[in-house]
Amino acid sequence: MTEPDILFGVYCPPHPQPLLSPEASEGYGKLRDAYDTCRKRIEDSDADLILVYSTTWPSIIGHQIQAHPEPEWVHVDDDFHYLGSMPYKFRMDVEFAQSFRDAAESRGLQSRTVAYDGFPIDTGSVVALKLLNPENRIPACIVSSNMYANRAETIVLGKSARDAIQQQGKKAVVVVVSSLSNRMFTEHIDPAEDRIHSAKDDEWNRKILEFFGDGRLEDLSQLSREIHGQIRVQKVVAYKPAWWMSATMGQHNNYTGEVLAYEALHGSGGAVVMLTPSSETVGDKEFDEDDVEHYHGDRGVLDKGAL
C-alpha cells in the first residue's frame, strides 16, 4: 500500500488575537504574518483536505469529528469576548469525516461524527480555519481532543486519521491547534506588554521549537509527558498534540521544520510552525522509542528514519 499523501503540517495557537486584534501588539502581528505565510503555502499546494486537531475542542464520548457540510455561526470566546465576534461559515469534507470515524472504530476507538446546526465549533478551530483557509477553497475536517484520552488512544487516533487520508486518496494538510506553554496571565494586560508567563515556560518553549526547527516530530512526541509536567496547566491528563501530529504525519524525525513565529499570547506560548516530510535528512537524527508493529530484532538507531 502506498503511504498517505501528507503535504505538510502546521502547528498553531488557539487564541483569537491573531485573528481579531493583530494590530494590538507587534507579537500578535508577527503571529498573523506567520498564519498568512501558511495560508499562502496552502493556496500554492495542491491540497484537497485540511485536517484539524484542536485542543480547545474537548470531548468525553470518544472522539468527535465535525461532519456538518457547512457549519455556520457567530462565535465568541469565553475569555476574550471583548475582542469581538468571529462569524464563520466553513466547508467540511463529510465523506472524509465518515471515513475517519470508520477508521477510528476499526482501530478500537469510540468515535462519532457530529452534524448539528449551531454546534459550537471551538475558538482554536475557528481561528485556524479562518486564517488558513479564509475562502473555504479546500474542504476541512475537525477532530476533538478527548479529555480522558492518553498516549495509546491519541496515537491510535492519529493512525486512524492516516488510514482515512490514505483510503480517501487525499492530499492533506495536517493542522494542530495548541499552545506550547499554556499558562496565561490571570489579570487583564496591556497587549503591548505581553510576554511569556515565566522564564521557565519561555526556555521550554524554545527547546520545543528547536526540535520543531530540526524536524524532530517523533522526538517531541516522545517528550510529551515531560512537556506536560513542565509547562502545561493540568487541565487534561496529558499534552497530546505531538502524539497525534506524529502518529498522523508519520512517527519519525524526517521533516523539514520552519518556525515562522513565536510570541506570547496573554502569557501563553504561541508558535506557528510548519513541518514538511523530507527525504533529505535520512539517518542523521535518532529517536529512542520506535513504534513497533512487528519485532525484527535489535537495530542500530541510525538505520531507521527513512519514510
Binding site: 475542542w57 474537548p58 470531548s59 468525553i60 464520548i61 469565553d78 475569555d79 469576548h81 457530529v114 448539528y116 446546526d117 449551531g118 454546534f119 459550537p120 471551538d122 496565561m184 496571565f185 490571570t186 489579570e187 487583564h188 496573554h266
Partner: peptide
C-alpha cells in the same frame, strides 16, 4: 474563564445552545 471572573452584562440573550459534548 482564566482571566478573572466574568458576569453577563446585557439585558437579553436569545439564541440556541448546543452542548459540545452531548449535541445529540
Amino acid at each position: 474563564t482564566y482571566i478573572g471572573t466574568h458576569f453577563l452584562g446585557l439585558p437579553e440573550f436569545k439564541s440556541k445552545s448546543v452542548d459540545p459534548v452531548f449535541p445529540n
